[in-house]
Simulated scan of single mutants.
Amino acid sequence: MGEDAKGLVQTELAPLFYSEEETAALLGIHRTTLRALAVSGQAPVEPIQLTPHKRVYRRIDVERLAGVV
């Protein structure tokens, strides 16, 4: 953690979303499996579709499912 000019400690914020690759790794499945589940509407966590080929997943949903939080 760094300090700014006023001496206050800066903290890094956790990302709000995980990529498809990060989500698959946390859930212990291959990214193509996660992608196939998302396309068929059966993903264990609801994806947010950014483009026709790119999805992200809410961090809190993924971490709850993975048992991280």
Score class of each variant (00 low, 15 high):
residue 67 G to Q: 02
residue 8 L to K: 14
residue 37 L to G: 08
residue 47 P to E: 02
residue 36 A to E: 14
residue 19 S to T: 15
residue 48 I to Q: 04
residue 17 F to V: 11
residue 12 E to G: 07
residue 27 L to C: 07
residue 52 P to H: 05
residue 36 A to L: 13
residue 50 L to W: 00
residue 1 M to W: 06
residue 64 R to F: 02
residue 15 P to D: 13
residue 12 E to N: 13
residue 45 V to W: 00
residue 1 M to S: 15
residue 12 E to R: 14
residue 68 V to W: 06
residue 13 L to I: 15
residue 67 G to D: 04
residue 35 R to M: 10
residue 32 T to P: 01
residue 2 G to R: 11
residue 1 M to R: 12
residue 8 L to H: 14
residue 21 E to Y: 05
residue 55 R to M: 13
residue 16 L to Q: 11
residue 50 L to R: 01
residue 3 E to Q: 10
residue 62 V to R: 01
residue 59 R to W: 05
residue 8 L to N: 15
residue 32 T to V: 13
residue 8 L to Q: 14
residue 49 Q to M: 03
residue 23 T to A: 14
residue 49 Q to E: 10
residue 3 E to T: 11
residue 24 A to M: 04
residue 43 A to E: 04
residue 65 L to H: 04
residue 55 R to A: 08
residue 30 H to P: 01
residue 28 G to I: 02
residue 31 R to W: 05
residue 42 Q to G: 06
residue 35 R to D: 09
residue 56 V to P: 00
residue 19 S to H: 03
residue 42 Q to S: 15
residue 28 G to S: 07
residue 58 R to D: 03
residue 68 V to N: 07
residue 3 E to H: 12
residue 18 Y to M: 05
residue 20 E to L: 15
residue 13 L to Y: 12
residue 62 V to F: 02
residue 16 L to P: 01
residue 12 E to C: 10
residue 52 P to R: 03
residue 49 Q to K: 11
residue 52 P to W: 01
residue 69 V to K: 12
residue 34 L to I: 12
residue 26 L to N: 08
residue 22 E to K: 05
residue 60 I to R: 11
residue 11 T to P: 04
residue 4 D to E: 12
residue 35 R to Q: 13
residue 27 L to G: 01
residue 40 S to A: 15
residue 41 G to T: 12
residue 3 E to K: 14
residue 65 L to C: 08
residue 4 D to W: 05
residue 35 R to C: 13
residue 57 Y to R: 05
residue 18 Y to R: 02
residue 51 T to P: 07
residue 66 A to K: 06
residue 62 V to H: 02
residue 21 E to N: 10
residue 36 A to C: 10
residue 11 T to H: 15
residue 1 M to V: 11
residue 11 T to G: 14
residue 51 T to K: 07
residue 62 V to N: 02
residue 38 A to I: 09
residue 54 K to T: 14
